[in-house]
Design a protein around this nucleic acid. Structure first.
Lengths: 198, 198
DNA sequence: AAATTAAATGAACGATCATTCATTTTTTAG
DNA sequence: CTAAAAAATGAATGATCGTTCATTTAATTT
């Protein structure tokens, strides 16, 4: 009896994810066919169904995988911070982390907030919960800062969404190799973030 | 000989636009069929082609129409300002205008920056030029403010994109009837915008 | 009114879609 | 090496897609 080791299978599944990620980001979920994905992977369309039950499941896998990785990466980042880190330093940490992480995965980021409407209700709810959990990270930093008198933030939830929109929007236009380095960008955005809450 | 008056025709075309706008915003361009649009309008699919040569032209019409209306609305707003308006006041004017205008047309806004990738290159270039023209409005205000020593903005183009992303992101979550009025929101965002450039 | 044009119908075109499945090939376990 | 399971093939399913077109109906002009 052969136990499921998944060695070859998981490798193919990963190639499917990579192909789908790139295609979905460039053309959009609805505009991409399973045949295009299969062609990019170098396989027949039917083979995709050995790894993902439906096209919708493939999208959900990409989106929830991205959000889970984002939350895990933040946990790791937060673990390096002192327990009593000042809100201003925490805000800087979050801002730099968010920019770096999102600029390194523009395709997944793009998909994860662009294809929400193509998710079936059940899948949508799951992704929304993850998104909310990530927003909570920033909201709590803002609340701590407001309580400490360091930030002037009357509506932490609103400010959270405003800041995340600003930071995430970066991915729609910034491309490496231009006049400004990623570090330059980090500095500019950090100044704006800091200024907007003080 | 009957000259083209377009009375009835333009009325139907407008109903097509309205149906397509709503459907595209809710499901995405690629996920909406001409048959769905025709059903919403109450007409047979073939009739749509009396008003728009292709589905792509319908999308382009919606997007460029939105951008042209936005630019025209700003021109009207700018015409009410004194010629020597202080940069800070100009920034407030732009911020309030942007929020009000965009919150009143969330569907068109959503489509116009979500469906860019579904535009053929020629159409894409046209929309991009309009978008650039709108960005220029804010960039010039920031440049004036920086020159006058009122703003601390080292990269007006970058700050422009950051601010517009922040302001436009509002449309993805704000819905009237909640705890915060549109005026409340305007105040919060204006404080953030002002703080981020000073 | 008649004449002319615009608009809508109803049916059809070929193409492509996501998905299924019996079969074959490849990988893995014992 | 052999047996079992996983993975891939190749072909097919019915459905739906954007678009076309001959024809009919409605609107508009003279």
């Amino acid at each position: 009896m052969a136990r499921p080791s998944g060695a070859k299978g998981e490798e193919t599944a990963e190639r499917v994810r990579a192909a789908a990620l790139s295609l979905f980001a460039r053309q959009g979920y609805a505009a991409v066919s399973m045949r295009q994905i299969a062609t990019d992977v170098g396989v027949q369309p039917g083979a995709l169904y050995n790894h993902f039950p439906t096209k919708q499941d493939l999208l959900k896998d990409l989106m929830s995988g991205h959000m889970a990785a984002l939350l895990a990466a933040w946990e790791q980042e937060a673990a390096t911070a002192p327990a009593d880190e000042a809100p201003k330093r925490a805000l800087e940490r979050f801002t730099r982390f968010h920019i770096r992480y999102h600029l390194a995965r523009t395709d997944a980021v793009f998909i994860s907030y662009m294809e929400l409407r193509n998710l079936e209700p059940e899948n949508f709810a799951g992704i929304e919960a993850q998104r909310r959990a990530y927003e909570d990270v920033l909201t709590r930093i803002l609340e701590r800062g407001a309580a400490a008198g360091e930030f002037k933030v009357s509506e932490p939830r609103v400010v959270t969404r405003a800041l995340i929109a600003m930071l995430t929007g970066l991915g729609t236009w910034y491309r490496p190799g231009g006049r400004l380095s990623e570090t330059d960008i980090e500095t500019i955005y950090l100044n704006m973030v800091t200024g907007s809450v003080t």
